[in-house]
Design a protein around this nucleic acid. Sequence first.
DNA 1: TCAAAAGTGTTGTCGATACACCCATGG
DNA 2: CCATGGGTGTATCGACAACACTTTTGA
Lengths: 239, 239
Amino acid sequence: MTQTSLSPAPSSAPTAPEEATRVAVSTVIFTLRRDPLDDQTVVLPLVRRTRDPHEGLWALPGGWLNPTESLDAAASRTLAETTGIAPSYLEQLYAFGAVDRSPARVVSIVYWALVRPDEIPNDVVENVSWFDAAELPRLAFDHNEIVEYALWRLRNKVGYSRIAHGLLADAFTLAELREVYESILGRRLDPANFRRQVENSGTLIPTDRFRTGSHRPARLYRYNQDVELADRGPLVVRH
Amino acid sequence: MTQTSLSPAPSSAPTAPEEATRVAVSTVIFTLRRDPLDDQTVVLPLVRRTRDPHEGLWALPGGWLNPTESLDAAASRTLAETTGIAPSYLEQLYAFGAVDRSPARVVSIVYWALVRPDEIPNDVVENVSWFDAAELPRLAFDHNEIVEYALWRLRNKVGYSRIAHGLLADAFTLAELREVYESILGRRLDPANFRRQVENSGTLIPTDRFRTGSHRPARLYRYNQDVELADRGPLVVRH
DNA sequence: TCAAAAGTGTTGTCGATACACCCATGG
DNA sequence: CCATGGGTGTATCGACAACACTTTTGA
């Protein structure tokens, strides 16, 4: 009746190793890719399982938590090992721990990440493939549900935060940034109002370079690193 | 190189039971209490540790994750066991997993909760005490940091969500509700504007009863259960 | 010179704030 | 009748959406 957090609790402690709950770390990684109609769509990498359970199905990249590494470090490591990606943005999403989500008892700490297209390694990694986030096949475990939640968080966060630059290269035009917002939110935005909003937010620094195309050149902007280290709360993922 | 989430990973798997990472569940429970100056203040229950590590220090209520229960269930169970509280609002906060946060390797899934004063059992539970959230002593493990984060989330969420009723009894006056907001946000709110805001939000149902006091009686309101089941995303804690 | 995208100006609406004011009750 | 909190009315401000308009380029 006075059992305290983290104190030994003999009655509920596992008595044999095979009964032990294990901790896994997985990551939902988003990036943008042009579809055949030249629209940006949200895509994510999945790994084909090579053993049971769910052999042959696609699953989120991840792995077991190493006893000597933090959760953040485990997310980065398993991500690099399975996909070769080192994301520009990485944040904890949720801990999934339903009893029947896997044959063995597994608690998964799930992260979500944004990567810029130029951060994706060119060499094709075996058993890794990229999928349109809106048209996923049946995934292993509860990973469909996890991706849905990650997408909800992405759309939510893009509304009040300025994380869209995590999907763009260093320098970008306002039209490119707007296209990112449009593809995530799933609706068109007024170019004039969008310009004023981001200009007034103080998160962008105009450069003196321009993207020259088939029409009037557009100014290139950089992201202002100094802002928005405050609104994420006391917790920040250190790299 | 093709290791997939949740697949067996012999190299990183624990070889002996004592090396295994263990999963704990803790909860930060908030409620309001009148201080000597008759102001509402945010308070939370802590449990005094009766064994090492950190014997004698105060810690968040919690316990080990049982192999046959979900994370949500473990939060409810450990909460009831250590404090006797069954909160009206319970939501996962964050998973803490720094390597050095405990002598043994422990990953804590932390929840946060709101309780109404009438939900708190009258019988005093041994080794449990309530503390002003703004004036905590040094706590066991990283629990000071965890409470700070929970407070940040509480203040944040009260701004865009309507969870304040989780701290009030079934029926309440607008002044009482406003006082909850004021104590959480730490600033005074205009009574007239506050009234309009909550009235327009559609979250309150006026009753035909009044709270009679020393002056003009104030109408009692109930919370509208039908609202805001949408803005919490695909994940909801079921009771 | 024309199409198309970059970029600017203007207006209306809506919600939040500030604050003046009236209402109802206990003492 | 008066002090006090309950409750209403209203002017102002700023954020945002809608959209007309000008500018600059490649073809």
